[in-house]
């Protein structure tokens, strides 16, 4: 039993380290994100709708973007026909960001909150925010 205290010390250290994120952030819940839709382009829209419905976009925008990416890069198809029959160019920079020009308010808030780091912006150009 002469290793007893080493084992206990090791175990305690391990538990402290593993639970580190929990006890350092205890009681400091980050505020839930409120993605902003307040951009000029959106204000001017007659009908405030994205390429698909809000619920769908909220849940599936990442799959939609990946689908667009594959269609454009690998299939050479550049036009998206939305559920309501409207046509859009499948382009992050030329379509999405035209309305959602407020990346820090619209994209980053949720992504930071959830700790996801999409690597879009090493190649695609971030919109200039005033």
């Amino acid at each position: 039993m002469n290793d007893f205290r080493y084992i206990i010390t090791g175990l305690v250290l391990f538990i402290v380290l593993v639970t580190f994120p929990l006890w350092t952030r205890a009681g400091k819940a980050a505020p839930a994100p409120v993605p902003s839709l307040e951009t000029q382009a959106i204000q001017q829209l007659e009908e405030k709708q994205c390429v698909e419905g809000t619920e769908y976009m909220r849940a599936n925008h990442m799959s939609l973007l990946e689908e667009w990416r594959n269609q454009v890069v690998r299939e050479g198809k550049r036009t998206y026909v939305a559920g309501n029959g409207k046509e859009y160019e499948m382009s992050l920079q030329k379509t999405c960001l035209q309305c959602h020009s407020n990346k820090s308010q619209f994209c980053d808030q949720c992504h930071n909150y959830l700790g996801v780091q999409p690597d879009c912006w090493t190649c695609h150009i971030e919109p200039k925010e005033s």
């Binding site: 920079q93 030329k94 960001l97 090493t122 190649c123 695609h124 150009i125 919109p127």
Partner: peptide, 11 residues
């Protein structure tokens, strides 16, 4: 001068 209409590449 970066043209926002086309992506750059990355390292």
């Amino acid at each position: 001068e970066i043209d926002p209409a086309y992506p750059t590449r990355e390292k």
